[in-house]
């Protein structure tokens, strides 16, 4: 066998073949509908513990600051969080600091509210979107009415039972930020930093590691990171959903990535070794 040619051919595999492998690694577990089981991390358990402090009638502010590109990993978090809040009898004020978030979130929460027989305006309200994150966070400390005279559906905030008497952060028992970008850090700096609001966060995988330091300093009580964080939360709530279902596909794809990296490196080193030996 011509070993040098075989080794060299491995380093020159068509990238489309790798895309095909990744596609199969994603599609096959989804078709098998295998439900993964996960061991919750300390950060996810702290997130759950933060929500567990809520009682009947408490008001929670949920800021959904993400775009369509992060919906796959953050929508399951929003669904699980809204379910958790409604199960505890707490009430939800939702806003979005990303314009696309408005289109992604309202329908999801509306569906869950209907499932738990929650009434719009009494048990939950969707404020909508405002630009400039720090300005919005600071302005909300006084009263949401100045910044959002009307909700996203055009109702006067002063006329809705849930929001009529809201006066800034002191009326919120918890703030939850579900974010795919820098807004989560803005909430830490301007929300927690200035007003000491109790905060939990759900973050996309790309920004998750950067927020570990805020958990260590207790600036954020608990954090869910990426699809795995969402899956852990679903498992803690005994609410199997999209995240738990997708986790097996993600694990298999990761294993494929590791295998490809190992094969690629071995073949590269082997090519160099053969080249040196033949000189």
């Amino acid at each position: 066998m011509d070993y040098p040619a075989v080794v060299a051919s491995i380093t020159k595999i068509d990238r489309r073949f790798i895309y095909l492998l990744v596609g199969l690694a994603v599609a096959i577990p989804l078709l098998l509908a295998h439900q993964a089981e996960v061991e919750p991390t300390e950060e996810s358990m702290a997130f759950h513990a933060g929500v567990s402090t809520l009682g009947e009638g408490d008001v929670v502010l949920l800021s959904t600051d993400y775009h369509a590109g992060s919906a796959s990993e953050l929508n399951p978090m929003v669904r699980a969080f809204a379910t958790d809040v409604f199960r505890r009898g707490a009430r939800l004020v939702v806003l979005s600091l990303n314009a696309q978030g408005t289109g992604l979130v309202e329908a999801e929460i509306n569906k869950i509210a209907a499932e738990y027989d929650r009434t719009y305006g009494v048990d939950w309200v969707f404020l909508g979107f405002r630009p400039s994150t720090p300005a919005v966070i600071l302005a909300l400390s006084a009263s949401p009415h100045s910044l959002f005279p009307q909700d996203f559906r055009g109702n006067e905030l002063a006329e809705l039972p849930l929001t009529a008497h809201l006066n800034g952060y002191r009326d919120f028992s918890l703030i939850c930020v579900i974010s795919s970008g820098a807004t989560a850090q803005d909430w830490v700096i301007y929300g927690h930093g200035r007003f000491q609001c109790p905060m939990v966060a759900g973050l996309s995988g790309g920004i998750g590691p950067a927020f570990q330091s805020f958990v260590d300093t207790h600036q954020i009580a608990g954090v869910l990171v990426g699809l795995r964080g969402a899956a852990e939360y679903e498992q803690m709530l005994e609410l199997p959903g999209e995240a738990l279902r997708a986790l097996f596909a993600q694990s298999l794809t990761h294993m494929l990535f590791v295998a490809l990296i190992v094969i690629g490196n071995i073949s590269l080193l082997a090519t160099r070794w053969i080249e040196n030996a033949m000189r």
Partner: peptide, 11 residues
């Protein structure tokens, strides 16, 4: 990991 999640979402 985050990008793979997007792919899973589309699939």
């Amino acid at each position: 990991m985050s990008r793979i999640t997007l792919l899973i979402g589309r699939f």
